[in-house]
């Protein structure tokens, strides 16, 4: 953990060497989801609701997902950019050091410019929390926090899976966008507006349902089962990371036996 902090510090120092570029990028990162959110706002202005969800409910979803995405993009950038690490051979360097590969890859890169996106999602979330028709309790606030944390775990897990693919091929990785960017776009609406098979896939295979749908029902008081169960579903989402780490390990082993 101390080492992780060290990595953070050294990378922050590096990034601060290019201050102008840093601010420009952060600024841009603020505007990317902003335009998407503007689109969402205009849609609600015209249609009023989407399958029974009103604007603030969806905005809450949007805020949570984008916040989780920006945090994991900032922390897990090393996995996101892993193909370059493999193709220029720097991964070998990590292997001759007496530390686990996951920690070292995480520490290889941070994208601090995602602060822009984070800020934007924070604003949206604040607006939604303020405007939404919910009696906020401590438990509900905690659940909201769980949702973000769980989202971070899931996105990081996906980044890790994609990175593990690099051990076999670095061509056609664009398809992984379906799960990263696609997952983000999809999960910014409550899951039940989609077709059944999409809902199933994104609940049981990649557990976004545990982040944005089941706990949301609890916060809005729409549950018809045990509220505690709904409240705890985000923790189940965190478990997604376990198989991802296993696949990663398997990938590293494959790499070391082929050296591709």
């Amino acid at each position: 953990m101390k080492l992780f902090g060290k990595y953070l510090l050294i990378l922050f120092k590096s990034q601060m060497q290019y201050r102008t570029s840093f601010w420009l990028m952060s600024f841009g990162q603020f505007f990317i989801p902003f335009s998407v959110f503007a689109g969402l706002y205009f849609m609600f202005e015209r249609f009023g609701q989407i399958k029974g969800w009103d604007f603030y409910e969806v905005a809450l979803c949007f805020g949570v997902i984008h916040m989780a995405f920006s945090i994991s993009e900032c922390l897990g950038r090393g996995f996101d950019m892993f193909s370059t690490l493999v193709s220029n051979g720097d991964f070998d360097r990590l292997l001759v050091r007496p530390r686990g590969t996951v920690l070292q890859v995480l520490g290889s890169k941070f994208e601090f410019t995602r602060i822009g996106r984070l800020l934007q999602s924070l604003l949206v979330l604040g607006w939604a929390v303020y405007g939404i028709d919910v009696d906020w309790t401590f438990a509900k606030a905690i659940t909201l926090l769980f949702m973000v944390v769980s989202g971070v775990f899931i996105f990081t897990g996906i980044f890790m899976l994609v990175a593990a693919m690099c051990f076999w091929t670095i061509q056609g990785l664009e398809i992984a966008n379906i799960f990263t960017d696609g997952g983000r776009e999809m999960a910014q609406y409550p899951l039940n507006i989609y077709q059944k098979w999409v809902v199933r896939f994104f609940t049981y295979v990649i557990p976004f349902g545990c982040v944005n749908y089941l706990p949301l029902l609890y916060i809005l008081g729409k549950t018809d089962g045990s509220p505690l169960l709904h409240m705890l579903t985000p923790l189940a989402g965190c478990l997604f990371l376990v198989p991802c780490v296993l696949v990663w390990r398997f990938g590293v082993r494959h790499y070391r036996s082929t050296g591709s």
Binding site: S21, L24, M25, F27, G28, S35
Partner: peptide, 10 residues
Amino acid sequence: AGSLLLFAVL
């Protein structure tokens, strides 16, 4: 990056 991002988003 800066020019591209701003142009692209808008």
